[in-house]
């Protein structure tokens, strides 16, 4: 009977431990995350514009690396920086929202500079949106 109890306690500890581990599982470390797809900003924009459903299946939740020129930089009152990359469109582009959980080497991006970001693709509203972005510096 006592032996049986010992096993039970053991199992319980493992179960609670696993549960807690899963519950407190950290967010994916975007800095070390592997890039799934790498392409220019125009290409990802065109993909969403021409066939949104297909682009959703292809890009949603993927770590996408986009390269392009800086069109606009914004910082909101929460200190979150957003960089819009030119996608060859008048109004819209590819929006890269910098990751809140990562320390960025810089959050200042001169307009017109060529940059590359990787982040999680969340889809298209008017622009294609990538969140949790970090700059890829090579």
């Amino acid at each position: 009977m006592k032996k049986y109890l010992k096993y039970l306690v053991g199992i319980l500890i493992v179960a609670v431990g696993t549960g807690a581990y899963m519950y407190y599982k950290p967010h994916q470390n975007i800095k070390t995350a592997k890039v799934d797809i790498s392409l220019p900003a125009e290409a990802v924009f065109t993909a969403f514009e021409s066939d949104e459903a297909a682009a959703n299946t292809k890009y949603l939740d993927k770590i996408v690396a986009v390269n392009g020129t800086v069109k606009e930089v914004n910082k909101n009152e929460d200190g979150i920086t957003t960089v819009t990359l030119d996608a060859g469109q008048d109004m819209f582009g590819v929006i890269c929202q910098l990751d809140e959980l990562t320390k960025h080497p810089r959050e200042d991006f001169p307009i017109g500079q060529k940059v590359q970001f990787k982040g999680v693709c969340t889809g298209m509203l008017m622009d294609v949106v990538l969140v949790r972005c970090v700059e890829i510096i090579d």
Partner: peptide, 28 residues
């Protein structure tokens, strides 16, 4: 975009997207 919601806990975000909102099917 539903997937642009950021949670404190990664697990919550995962459940939110995959189980409740099914944001792969309904991204907006």
């Amino acid at each position: 975009l539903i997937k642009a919601f950021q949670f404190e806990k990664a697990l919550m975000q995962e459940h939110f997207n995959e189980n409740y909102m099914e944001s792969g099917t309904y991204p907006k």
